[in-house]
Design a protein around this nucleic acid. Structure first.
Length: 135
RNA sequence: ACGGUUGCCUUUAUCGCCUCACGCAAGUGGGGAGGAAAGUCCGGACAGCUCAGAGUACCGCACUCCUCGAAAGGGAGGACUAUCAAACGUGAUGGGACAGAAAGUGCUAAAGAGAUUUAAACCGCCGAUGGCCUUCCCGCGCAAGUAGGAAGGAACAGGUAAGGCUGAAAAGGUGGAGUAAGAGCCCACCAGCAAUGGAGUGAUCCAUUGGCUUAGGUAAACCUUGCGGGCUGCAAGACCAUGUAAACUAGUGCUUGAGGGCUACUCGCUCGAUGCUAGAGGGUGGGUCGCAUUAGAUCAAUGAUGAAGCAGCUCUUCGGAGCUGAACAGAAUCCGGCUUACACCGUAAUC
């Protein structure tokens, strides 16, 4: 991989209901206002180290336009910050599920998103997820 | 208020997303939110339920005509009603669940004598007629008294429904005649109702005649009448795949049939035995189609950061600099209509 690839393919989206439930019930938690992040170890077929999901409360943002906007900003920020986590990952390595929850009350700017996601990625690099012993 | 508008910019760079075509691949090329995509208020296509059946119930619609594939949409008209202008001919603008209250039932506060055969009971008016009381006249009688007549009084019988502070509504209204007092008892005009005739496709309007013995509001109370509706909705529905337990316990049933389906019920029709019900337990919880004439997914794409131009605003040392480019709002089977939200433009009215 000569040039860094800022991609966000379909396979990088977390869709499994089971994995999302596990992330919430037994996953680790990181809070960087206005983001709440849940992540856990999991396995899936696609050749990516992470699958992510984003969620914005319908209670806080009544209009679908606003919710779409926030999710797109989060995805864009993750797309640009993600390569730092991929440095040592090879095909077949550990896989993780991450859920981003937006807990702010106002629509953020892209810079706010990017800075906070950057800090979250730093936390993820410093605290590698423990892989439970598979039976 | 009405009308209009792909409805707010153009070009471009880098990174990225969904999808289609081509390609072994790397990749290349094309397409990628709205007028309301919203609310889900009507209607239709489409799909399943048996063939889409009968009756009841239930639901919807409700002045007329035309129109649209259809509708609670659109157009024109009628009656009613509000405001204004008029000044008795009406005109302008606006309004809406505008069938039926003379089929029945219910409700109708407060006020009021009385509220739906109120009602001849109360207040009031009258008391002509009959009776009662007083006075006077006349006849009879010694007298008490009494037949008759006149005037007055009370209001006993009785007459009356005009009036009675109310009220949305009090048994047509106004005026006259009439009477003891009164009354559609009678008359004139007006109003309403009915019948007849005429005009109009029709709602309805006009004229004539008739009796006025059929009595307020409420049907967004039940209800009645007319018309319409079979039910459920793309989570419809079809197919493929994965997995398990056609096991266990109890009950019940096998054509004299449990149970299921078709609509809430009845009928009718139909399926029906390795069945049905309950208990405890085992497993799956994926995909494709439906699904789009060039947006089109299946946790759901349409994004981020720059640059230049253009437009608007602010500041200016006139060189320029800064800010803004939105609001309402995000497709999920499709189509038509309606409603609501918002920006700009035009017209009209008011301040």
């Amino acid at each position: 991989m000569v040039q860094t690839r800022y991609t966000f393919k379909k396979g990088e989206r977390l869709k499994s209901v089971i994995a999302i439930n596990r992330a919430f019930s037994e996953g680790s938690k990181v809070v960087k206002f206005p983001f709440l992040v849940r992540y856990t170890h999991t396995t899936f077929d696609a050749d990516f180290p992470y699958q992510i999901a984003t969620t914005v409360s319908k209670r806080r943002f009544k209009r679908a336009v606003d919710r779409n906007r926030i999710k797109r900003l989060i995805r864009e920020a993750w797309r640009l910050e993600k390569p730092r986590l991929l440095a040592n990952w090879e095909k077949g390595g550990a896989q993780h599920a991450i859920v981003f929850v937006y807990i702010g009350k106002e629509i953020p700017t892209f810079d706010q998103c990017k800075n906070n996601i950057c800090k979250i990625v730093d936390v993820l690099i410093d605290n590698p997820i423990e892989i439970p012993a598979t039976t």
